[in-house]
Computed example of a mutant assay.
Amino acid sequence: MSAPERRRPGANSPIRLTANVEPVRTGVEAPVTPEQPRQQIAPAEPVKEATIPTTVALREGLKRRAQTAVLHTAALPGGYRSFAALVDGALERELERLANEHNGSVPFEPNAGGFRTGRPFGS
């Protein structure tokens, strides 16, 4: 027994093969009509540099509070969309504070060498 022959719908078929594209309204930008060209929107943040995975031990309560903050503020202005974004933003603010207090308001240069690992001195 052979499979039935597959046929595409012809011109008289009620099935239409043309796409019906509907506009999507996200609330982020004004809808674009075909007559109106899309405007280029400047990026809100500077160009992202590569990320690297980093393992850090955090207090359990601190990490859980941070995760809850992300969940409650992800959709709000000024909120963070991920735990990594919150940690990144917090580190940026703390590095700026440390530079202002201890480095004459000059940002610290990236470390080009190694970084000591293991137990802290005096422990």
Rank of each mutant, 00 (worst) to 15 (best):
R25H: 10
R93N: 02
Q67W: 00
H102L: 14
L62C: 03
E92G: 00
F115M: 15
P4C: 01
T18N: 11
P53N: 08
Q40S: 07
V70P: 07
E45L: 14
T73A: 06
A11Q: 10
A85M: 04
T73V: 04
Q67N: 03
T117Y: 02
R97P: 03
S123F: 15
R64I: 06
S82K: 06
P77M: 08
A11M: 04
A90M: 13
A42P: 01
Q39H: 05
G122T: 03
I41T: 10
V21L: 10
G78M: 04
A75Q: 10
S105Q: 13
E29I: 09
N111D: 05
G114N: 09
A11F: 03
F115Y: 12
Q36A: 07
V106L: 14
G27N: 04
S2A: 10
A69I: 03
A75E: 12
R97D: 04
V106P: 00
G104M: 11
A42H: 03
L76T: 08
G79L: 04
T18G: 06
S123A: 15
G118P: 05
E5Y: 05
E5L: 14
R16F: 01
E35Q: 13
F115N: 11
P23H: 09
R59G: 13
F121G: 11
L58E: 02
T55L: 13
G114A: 14
P107I: 08
L91C: 11
E5F: 05
V32K: 11
P31K: 07
T68D: 09
T33H: 05
A85K: 07
G114I: 10
I52L: 13
A90E: 03
F108H: 09
V56K: 13
S82H: 04
L17V: 12
E45V: 14
P34V: 11
A19Y: 05
T26K: 09
A50Y: 03
R8L: 07
P34M: 07
E45H: 14
D88C: 09
